[in-house]
Design a protein around this nucleic acid. Structure first.
Lengths: 357, 357
DNA sequence: TTGAAAGCGGTACCAG
DNA sequence: CTGGTACCGCTTTCAA
């Protein structure tokens, strides 16, 4: 009874194409499949002669190992997914993401891991994505820009796939995450505004269904409270990190409190929007209204006047996420690890020299 | 002699985690593995009773089919890769990509295919990527923004993986592609400039290692030649599609030909850069110098004055790429299919009313 | 150092 | 309609 070659015609399924298999390489090299395999798994115990024979055969046949087969036995895919559930227009417009991806890529690339970016655009996409991630397409998952109480990370985590979040999840969750000190950053921004003598300090918040949005608002509150100031909801308007909403929010704030003398925006893009509105309303910046943003992105230096802003180490955040994931790849399922990175206030003309102090 | 459960301890490799297998689902459901499999492959021949039993068991065990195993036998992964070999800063900055991704995503999503974005950042990344793509991680590959004579698409194509390019490859290649009519678009832009009476028409080209760059320059030449004008290399400066280079190129052109009266830029971003430079040199647009861009992106309407530009159907290009790939997924390896989409000139103030005609 | 063989978790053919 | 079973291509004992 044969074990192979029983069929008259090759079955049509089978890895689709007629790519060479390890078996064929072994045959050409005149060794067993086991030995050939050892060559590709960098196993130590192979004679130089056998190794060369296999390498030559592989080259000749243009052999590439079938990942599905390898994954099936090793349980590894050597790739990790980065999930960003944002509309493409947002994803590609925000200067945050390229920096994050760069940081992540640096670390993963060194470990020969393939980074695949996944961008669910709808509820159905997310459902399918859960299957994709749970079914062993990737060894681990990084997720950022989660809104609301997205169940995806926990679900994937529960299936035994290592997960690291960028940004604190909204609900308490056993999933590892890396975040920047949003509370502290916002607090230092507002403290700075207080120090330069501003008293009616407004804020344009981020999306309040995201940790970053909530925390930056928290920092704003903390600083005011600590200075013994009242928290006035009229001085607070919510946004979405995008420039148009920043402009609109500023409009609303000016309407409600024409006498405000400073505004802290939870992103540079929104701060840029606020500047537009202030200009239209003939408010001088920083003389009449001081402005501080958050991110210290390229936007901050290209506005007129340049924006004071809270700098976050985004590349480092990406690197740290990747490192945390790598750690989780080797060791058994871990959870509850968190890393918080420091932020730093950068003062520029929008709240600095030329002001009225 | 047992076939299963021979080992005292479960082997540690094996799909890593202890996720439930089809075998277990079948056992719980009281049916054979074959029947259970039929339920998940949407095979018609299953009794309602058996089907329900399997579904219940699967639910209870939180079963998710192992993709590697399935792929190994079917040869399909139900995912397709989109390769964009650009630095992250460029990728995320250019308004071209979100629109393309949106178009692609629309079509793929409907077919339940997972889109994975791959962004090689270095030569090593590209080498690894070739392995990833060739090893059967994806059923098909879309590639855009290829520079020079990148061998990747042909290599992957030769391994039997369907490939569709966005943008004409530089060398003649058997790979399918979708492109917009860059030559025609550029020609109509320049014809328009001629028609409004401009005679010393300069151009800032795209990267000349890309089809889009070459073709738009070609269109510029065609229009001039057809009008019986000389082609003056002094009126030509090369760029990279990015805004800073557009500004610099304009600088150089003004220096060489202070009397130029129009400029055709191969991208809106570069046209925006050119506008900056013209403003700095106190040239009025369009009175002294008319400007036309390419892309008709959001940039075009936000500059002062708004830019005339060549509109390209980018979402449609994405959709068409996806459709072409889908066609290739079902049928045997095809090649040489090409789709060219029409472009359209949109005239705005930078070359229109208020001019000197 | 090497080869034989037992699976990894599915799919699909073949009998019944 | 169902179960038994032969693979898919590779890794990894186990013995030789």
């Amino acid at each position: 009874m044969y074990k192979r070659g029983v069929r008259a015609l090759p079955r049509n399924g089978a890895a689709g194409n007629g790519n060479p298999t390890l078996e064929e390489v072994a045959r050409v090299a005149g060794v067993s499949r086991a030995t050939a395999s050892r060559v590709f798994t960098a196993s130590p115990k192979v004679s130089p002669k056998a190794r060369r024979a296999v390498e030559r055969a592989a080259e000749k046949l243009r052999y590439v190992p079938n990942r599905a087969a390898r994954t099936l036995v090793t349980g590894r895919t050597d790739s990790v997914g980065l999930v960003i559930p944002e509309p493409t227009s947002f994803l590609f417009g925000d200067p945050f993401f390229p920096r994050l991806v760069r940081g992540i890529g640096e670390v993963l690339s060194r470990r020969q891991l393939q980074l695949v970016l996944l961008m669910p655009q709808s509820k159905e996409d997310e459902a399918r994505l859960e299957g994709y991630l749970s079914a062993g397409h990737v060894d681990g998952v990084l997720m950022v820009s989660l809104h609301g109480n997205d169940p995806l990370p926990e679900r994937v985590h529960r299936r035994g796939t290592p997960v690291v979040l960028g940004g604190k999840p909204n609900v308490d969750s056993p999933v590892n995450y890396v975040d920047v000190d949003n509370v502290g950053g916002a607090r230092s921004a507002v403290e700075h505004l207080i120090k330069i003598g501003r008293r009616r300090i407004a804020t344009v918040t981020g999306p309040l269904d995201m940790g970053a949005g909530v925390d930056r608002l928290q920092g704003y509150h903390d600083a005011l409270r600590q200075a013994g100031a009242q928290i006035d909801p009229v001085l607070q308007e919510s946004g979405d990190f995008g420039q148009p909403r920043g402009a609109k929010a500023m409009e609303a704030l000016l309407h409600r409190r024409p006498d405000l003398d400073a505004v802290f925006c939870a992103s540079d893009a929104m701060a840029a929007g606020a500047l537009e509105t202030l200009r239209r309303h003939k408010r001088r910046v920083p003389q009449d209204v001081a402005v501080v943003g958050f991110d210290d992105s390229t936007i901050a230096t290209s506005t007129v006047p340049p924006l004071s802003s809270v700098r976050q180490p985004i590349e480092e955040m990406g690197r740290e996420m990747a490192r945390l994931l790598l750690a989780g790849l080797d060791s058994p399922p871990s959870g509850g690890k968190r890393v918080i990175l420091a932020t730093e206030l950068v003062v520029r003309a929008s709240s600095g020299k030329g002001g009225r102090e």
